[in-house]
Design a protein around this nucleic acid. Sequence first.
DNA 1: ACCTAACGAACGATCGTTCGTTAGGTGGTT
DNA 2: AACCACCTAACGAACGATCGTTCGTTAGGT
Lengths: 195, 195
Amino acid sequence: MTASRSRTREDVVKAASRLFAAQGYHGTSMRDLAREVGVLGSSLYSHIESKEDLLVEVVEIGAALFQASAAKAVARGGDGAELLRSLVRGHNDVVLDHLDEARTFLFEADALDEPHRQRVVAARNDYETVFRAALETGRKDGSFRAGIDPKLAAILILSMLNAVERWYRPGGSLSRSALADAVVEFATRGIGSRI
Amino acid sequence: MTASRSRTREDVVKAASRLFAAQGYHGTSMRDLAREVGVLGSSLYSHIESKEDLLVEVVEIGAALFQASAAKAVARGGDGAELLRSLVRGHNDVVLDHLDEARTFLFEADALDEPHRQRVVAARNDYETVFRAALETGRKDGSFRAGIDPKLAAILILSMLNAVERWYRPGGSLSRSALADAVVEFATRGIGSRI
DNA sequence: ACCTAACGAACGATCGTTCGTTAGGTGGTT
DNA sequence: AACCACCTAACGAACGATCGTTCGTTAGGT
């Protein structure tokens, strides 16, 4: 049935996510990928069109995950502070639950051809805009200081979040929930000026 | 005269920095590199041992730049807050003045063989330790809140700094100095709780 | 009997690298 | 000044390996 075929295709895409995330797109050969799936290189082409097609698919999965996370946070509502907290938790969940797709989306888009790369840039801009809007909301409703620059703050917060996968190891002393809380607290209070 | 006109090893290393930073190690061929230098592929081997040797060299240059920056900040002295400011300014200067080497050091170390990769990991740990020590100092001298986690804060601050090259464009509305100030202010005050 | 995933050989292109050769410049000796 | 020995950077062909991909064939499930 079509179900078994599409499941196999999903296996290939999932394996590609893993290898692209671990070794990079250019560092992964189709024979590497085939070995990961448990098949010979040529057999992959029963399921996919081309290597670049695979990258497009993985990157789009990553983009959709972040987009869905942002949409869910917005739908949940709340003031600026609550919105920011939702966004941070959602982002962390995406990174930790879908590490390979997130990594590929965040760091391998340069390997795409120009039109596809532009779509990734646009998706990231849209996502960043949601963060910026949350910060603007919070600035107005009193959640945050009046002096903040929402655009810059959004970039800095996302910089911290996107780097989480580089150092966070699940099962350590810091739980996933505590991680999100720590990022939010750092973003809102910083390290300084004990009152 | 021969020194300035003849292509030296440094020219090759510099070109490699540019391409490794722009396209990644695996995305750069020796013929790509040769074209960048203005020579045929085989001619590169008058100057270097191997492609991986080149990566090692570029990465070590990057490591040395960050290490020197940290040493300079420490030598300058001051309390925790002043030390952190020095470290942030120094880091930004390294990234903006030596973008290619910094990028390669930060993001291409995975392509190294295991022993060399370990040395990069160690260098990054040492560098992070300087940041952590500055935060611990500041926690004791009253520059920062008592409740902060220096290890986590160091990671988060470095996450922001390492991402600067992904979005900052010199010549824009944000000067280099203002950028460093903004990062320091974000790190110390955050966005929240107007008191 | 049909469908299809997987095989395995093979394609041309490109990979990193080697090697014998060449051109051009330098220094030393006459 | 003229010679020669020497050095070095670059060339260009070629190496074996591997790249992404194609294709005719085969095995197994429905």
